[in-house]
Amino acid sequence: MATKTHSEEHHHDHEEPHIVGNSVYIIVWVALMILTGITVWVARHNFGVFNIVVALGIASIKASIVALFFMHLKYEDKLTWTFALYPLFLLALLIGLTASDVFYRLSP
């Protein structure tokens, strides 16, 4: 989670921009490349239902890495975290509750 947290009531001491070293970025990039390679490799083999699980799992890891480091989410306050995660929750709701209609409709 965020390394720096700011209490809501003290919104006037704002954070300085956090400068991340290029070495961190290079490591992150290498990791992203390796993960991309793994995704492509996995897709060429049949693991049944695990294919989609692995594909989405890896995509989520990659997305998290991009958000945490490239987008500096790691260094953001709780407020930013809240508004970064809440849309994902709503997305899950949209997919989940719509599916609860569509799939129970198809196979009662």
Binding site: L93, L97, S100, D101, V102, F103, Y104, R105, P108
Partner: peptide, 22 residues
């Protein structure tokens, strides 16, 4: 308010399970 949308759709042919949840 994000959890209740399908109550507009009870007679649209949606699934009864979902209708009950909503």
């Amino acid at each position: 308010s994000f959890l209740v949308w399908a109550h507009h759709m009870f007679v649209s042919g949606m699934s009864e399970v979902a209708a009950t949840i909503f």
